[in-house]
Nucleic acid binder design. Sequence first.
RNA 1: GGGUGGUUAGCUCAGUAGGUUUAGAGCGUUUGCCUUACAAGCAAAAGGUCACUAGUUCGAAUCUAGUACCACCCA
Length: 872
Amino acid sequence: MKNYNFKKYNKKIYNKWIYYKYFNSNYNKDKKSYSLLLPPPNITGDLHIGHILNFTILDIYARIKRMKGYNVCWIPGTDHASIATVIKVLKELRKNGINVNNISKKQLKTFLFNWSIKYNKIIIDQLKSIGCSCDWDKFQFTLDKKNYNSVIKVFIYLYKKGLIYKKDRIINWDIVAKTTISDEEVIYKKQINYLYYIKYFTEDKKNFLVIATTRPETIFGDTAICINPKDKRYINFINKKVLVPIVNRLIPIITDKSVNINIGTGCLKITPAHSKKDFKIYKKNKKKIKIINIFNDDGTLNVNYKHYKGEDRFIVRKKIYKKLKKLGYLIKKEKIINKIGYSERSNTIIENKLSLQWYLKMKRFIKPTLKIIKRIKIFPKKKYINLFYKWIKNLKDWNISRQLIWGHKIPIYYYKKNVIIATSYKNAIKEIKKKYKKKIKKYDLKRDNNVLDTWFSSWILPIAVLNGINKKNNLFFNYYYPINLLVTGYDILFFWVLRMIMFSSFYIKKEPFKNIYFTGIARDNNKKKLSKSLGNYKNLYYLLNKYGADGVRIGILNNNYENDFIFNENLCLKGRNFINKIWNSFKVINKIKNLKTKYNKIKIEYRLIIKWFENLLNYNLYKLNFLLKNYKIYKSLIFIQKFFKNKFCSIYLEVIKHNKNYINNIIKKKTLDFYYILLKILHPYIPFITEYIWNIFKTKNNNNITISSLPKIKFFNKKIIKKFNYTFTFIKKLKKINLLKKNKKIFIYIKKNNFYKFRKDIYIPLLYKLSYIKEIRIKKKIINKSKYLFFCYKQHKFFLLKKYILLNKKIDNPKYIYKKINFYKNYLLNINNKLKNKKFILLAPKDVIMLEKKKKKDIEMKIFNLKKSLLN
RNA sequence: GGGUGGUUAGCUCAGUAGGUUUAGAGCGUUUGCCUUACAAGCAAAAGGUCACUAGUUCGAAUCUAGUACCACCCA
């Protein structure tokens, strides 16, 4: 087989893991638990790159901990994503030519339900195909029965604590989804807009004020004009009345300090039902002014005035503009750039609207949160902690009600003027019986028709998934809580992560997570967010089919995702190439494994290379462990890749693979051992191919790499590694000097007294093996120097016969050499200045001074060398 | 308007509790090579006054301040 056939094997491998229940986890008092939470993806569509990144990181830790002997429990799930899903479903229906306005609530609910089933399936399949090692028996959907009950229970708990209230406020209204949305879901976009200057005449029509507004269509809702009390221009107007153009309604002129004299004309028209600022002013002047709501829920006007009723707000704007112009009310129209709020979900302009909504008081959450948050380890450290504190300080009450049918219904019932809170109709009836001693029937009751914000079910998740709300302090819960690791994008830091911490701190006074790792956001080559609407988004199945799950995993992980990172398909190609490298190394190892070997003598270079690799392997295991402990995942992968490619393949295998006759039992065993260890440390990153290879090697024992144990770090000697490195860099430098003529091995010459020292520093058998040097010849004196190329590395000097060497044109170009000489001369100057500085000699540590002196020597040697090559 | 992060090779980024780095990696570019694991490969080369200015220091890509530009978040 030329390449690893992921299409053929990946599914089989995953099913095998599931069949043996490797990922299932249950309470076991003898084993340490390690729990992870899958940030539940919305059921609005496929998984995207950000998801895959987060889930792959979670999978790496799940697998590592499992291989370290922990009882790993990774709970998967999906989110019903109330408003986002509704919008998706409505879009789909319209696409299929269905008139959305004719659909009953019941029908829509069926559509939503079917959608949720479809996408739950897709998401689960995608999670499985990228290899996530979740415990599927514990799968949860935020709208399933258990979660529903938890949410209702929490609502009632908070309500009884007096933290939930209903109030009229100006809210953000999404005219497509026909619901409120939170401030966080409003996105402000810069836009070209017009400022209309309109005359408002006084009662006697002798005088007028000019009002500048971007929204002339709202004049129907005007109930006052407001000016700054310090504004001298309008002193005479205070407490008088003006007429609203077109509708001719008399409204008062009031004053308020918050009006900015310098914006527009300094006169503000007050439309309290459709502006936050106006509503604030209204509240101060309740006796003087009224509220008029002029919009329907879909953004059309409800005004009973001729042609405007039922027309869209922006069409009315144009009509009003024409009318004002015609009637002489309009002074001018001015181009401006301002920012306008859009709904993140439906991408339509938000309408501010006065509405009765449910709110959650947040103040009481602050203190416990500040206490608990310190216990959570957050990675990367610096960046996000300050953000947390900033958010907490600016907390506002949370609007938790949404006017949708897809979500957790608010458990409030109304009986005449009485409000009853209960988990069901039945219980509500019982409650009334108890309280008011009245027997009533279901239709006497009216249920609150709001559902809860989708984040209201998300913020209780760490406790709810472990069933800690329905059954407080159950065994299962106590075993796994707090959850050990959460990995998520920083963009939902406030929406979700902080709220989870707040809830857990308040509800059970414990942190929800021990560790949180934040990733950046995937962007394309132009630094734009990846999204379907921009078309810079690749479907997951497309990537998986082309590069395989392992390749995609490596591709996505090969970014520095501590910040926002750039993702393109090319990275997956690189990932697949690495997988291919592993596959090819497997072919070599497999051949070695099948060799019939004996216990004969080992050649020295083999003994050396084994000694080197054994030490390096253990040293690198130690380093890897350190990286993973500190959640340097990106670096850990780069590190392993380099180690595998540059050290194991390029050096170790290159030495071992030739001359099969020399491979004996010891070499064979060592090589296989090394390879097994490499497979094990690679497994968490690329689970499929490693499992496949492992199974071929270990057919007799039925165990799989997934449940094998990670190698323990054994003793290593750094000095030995250093000496080998010296040899390898020497070989590299030697190769750098010049290109060798094809397939020829050459001699190098060295002076006798230098040779003994050289032998101490360098492993000469390896030098022969890995370079084009056939032999080192010792000479007492070099005669006829012009025939040789002089070469110097550290203190060792060599001569190479020129006739065997292809000269590198660039390097031997005098211009290039002069440039280099100049560079080093400048460098030397800096060092000399340092060394001449008396204070430096006095104050700097001795080893630093030694180093500088050594640098000086080396560079002098380099310059000398370069000059010599010029002479040649 | 307020806040946060950033500026190192053509591109994407590493970089140390200030001196073991004579500034690194990957990609891209150039050169050589179908060598019995791998051309989806191997071997090598070119490419940088570490944004700018000042300060602290024996010593600054690294610390401090300011400037310029970029990105994101919030109002």
